[in-house]
Amino acid sequence: MFRLGAKQIARAAAPQARNYATLREIEMRLKSIKNIEKITNTMKIVASTRLNKAQRAMQASRVFNESEAEFNKNADPAKTEELKEEGAEAATTPEDKTLLIVVSSDKGLCGSIHSQISKSARKRAQALNGNVDIVAIGDKVKAQLTRTHGDNVKLAFNGVGKEAPNFTEVALIVDEISKLGKYENVEILYNKFVSGVSFEPSTFSIFTSDAIANAPGINKYELENEEITKDLSEFSLANNLLTAMAEGYASEISARRNAMDNASKNAGDMINSYSILYNRTRQAVITNELVDIITGASSLD
């Protein structure tokens, strides 16, 4: 009991004795928050300037992808799958694996962008009963997916997404992906840039050459030779991947800008409350000292 009481006293006495130290502590804390605010603010400015460039790249790649989209709308290879499924019913082979290409990047500090895309990748994998092979583009998404789907991740790339993607980079990735073998279904998961403040995980489906050749609307087009469907399928993978990466990049930059904007605002709030606390503590220390001096002086009288 006595011991406990002694401890209590010691603890109560400590903050009084360390008044100066707390003041210094607050000061240091305040300084570090100010520094962090400077950093987040700079990152925000950097992201804002990059955003324009990223959006331009995204716009260009969207146009680049448009002819493909229009062809798909007219020829409609998606229907091939439906027709096939209806015709064959249960005869579809269960070992048809889906290749899921998840597009993200290496860098963090950009809000929920990576976790959202991996969440939707997990959901998609679950919908397909785990019968998927995953290609992760970007370290962040790789780390998150290997945790839950370690066996499914077949291939991972890093070092992408530092700048707006270019076609050479994409072609190299596609080359590696095509070495994995042939897949009946290929899907690209990416963050679609909706506006400066929002993005949503979306999908591109890549159709195989067979699906294109058997598409219900393919007769609208005159094809010189049959081989072109294969070229088209490969080209469309590269094409869509480029668009996906450009959209992902733009979404990431804008998400980073928002995240950094929020961080700067929060730092500003903290700076305010800490400066008030700092001033108050300083005033308290001064008052304490004055009390000490005056009591000392009056005791001498």
Binding site: A60, V63, F64, S67, A164, N166, V170
Partner: peptide
């Protein structure tokens, strides 16, 4: 006509 490059339209 629409002529598009990956990085430019």
């Amino acid at each position: 006509l629409s002529l598009a490059l990956p990085f430019q339209t």
